[in-house]
Write a protein that binds this DNA or RNA. Structure first.
Lengths: 230, 230
DNA sequence: GCATTCATAATTGTATACAGTTTAGAGTGC
DNA sequence: GCACTCTAAACTGTATACAATTATGAATGC
């Protein structure tokens, strides 16, 4: 068996990464010829990948003017956080009914294993990867593939801002008080106790808190994107 | 100003409609040459449109084998209904806080205007259009563009099944008892009273009820698709 | 300086050609 | 009949060419 992955897939993955990282500036027009050279593919597969990203909300498209990066505004980011609440809280409610005890225990073990690493990690990207993995595993427990698909898409579009927020959070506040339960632990505790209301409240509070800090993170994102410090 | 809409857009809209209606049979492989002739466009814009539909969940793609219609299974439909609950209930909770009285009154007026038409309508497609419009307007009141986008996508993928369900519902039960509030009215009443819990319960019950009937509708869908009665 | 016009360059839109891969089916042996 | 092989046809993947459209910028008039 040779390559399973097609060229379009490779181009698509690369572009998705670039779009997530705002390698294209907000509202920036994308030059197809230049980009195709850069990615080592012709415009045909490039445009196919770009069209997928339009449908996923990473890019926009204007007839006869081509593809543009999505814009970055507080409202846009607020909406993404709002959608996360919708998806993750409903998934959690479902999980309270549908997840088995062993599945919940497995996620608990994962949390216990990763939290010490998370607490001491110096790389924010690594931290965010762990955080996203926990939330994804949680939504997987709901057994609903659509909710899972939605969260994956939201995570990818919101990642750049979350990374900034995470960095700031670490700079500001000291380490969590030892012995105190982490937010993730409290969510999982609600789930284990099949207490949908408590789990929902913990999750909602968790996301809303980050959402409140997001507008400030958008400002910082702009300053990073338009005035590179390196 | 000449045409604003591009060829890709035209092809895309046509394909989306076809995919929604299962003009492609579940799991059916799509022949690009044939389809491009049928739509009067070459394979290049056709494939661009097909790629968008893959990203939206209408189609799937396998490398070197091309595009396929999404499969139609009870699980898939159940998941779509589950996602609808997530999106619509959260939108409703947001609306209880953010929607203005006049916006709610306007939706109430729309409901009062359409419900008599709805009750007496003989065309199920027309009924479904009204139903979808109400739900879309409701989610628009939340002010969250992402939730709106998500619901539009879900509606398009679930439409075929809802149409069957609506037909059956009408055949089975007689007309609603006069004087009794419609489900939509009860949802709106909860919203007007800023009672998120009541509104949520009404919405959740409404969607879950249809969801329970959906598996049966899937069976009928299959018999319709594979044994046309005309 | 500022707006307007027009020619030209740059860019996007799409048909087409052809290479690479998969699929279908005839042929063969058992 | 059944499984296997091999060849031809069908189909997908992508580069490329060229038409259509938009963007750029110099020239012009005020």
């Amino acid at each position: 068996m040779g390559k399973q992955e097609s060229n379009v897939d490779r181009v698509y993955e690369a572009l998705r990464q670039m779009a997530a990282d705002f390698a294209f500036m907000p509202d920036q027009r994308i030059n197809e010829s230049e980009l195709s050279k850069q990615l080592g593919a012709s415009r045909t597969p490039l445009r196919e990948a770009l069209n997928r990203l339009v449908a996923e909300g990473f890019l926009t498209f204007q007839n006869n003017r081509g593809f543009f990066c999505r814009s970055l505004t507080p409202k846009y980011i607020q909406d993404l956080y709002g959608a996360r609440v919708a998806v993750e809280c409903e998934a959690l409610r479902l999980s309270c009914v549908r997840a088995t005890d062993s599945e919940i225990a497995a996620l608990g073990a994962y949390l216990e294993q990763t939290e010490p690493v998370y607490e001491t990690a110096t790389d924010s990207g690594e931290q965010l990867t762990m955080d996203e993995a926990f939330h994804m595993r949680l939504v997987q427990l709901s057994g609903n593939a659509e909710l899972e698909r939605m969260l994956r898409n939201l995570n990818d579009r919101i990642r750049y801002i979350r990374l900034i927020d995470l960095k700031r959070m670490r700079d500001k506040s000291g380490a969590r008080v030892p012995g105190e339960l982490s937010v993730h632990s409290r969510i999982l505790l609600g789930l284990a106790g099949r207490d949908a209301v408590a789990a929902d409240a913990a999750m909602r509070g968790h996301i809303e808190k980050r959402r409140e800090a997001a507008t400030e993170a958008v400002q910082i994102a702009f300053s990073q994107l338009y005035v590179p410090q390196d």
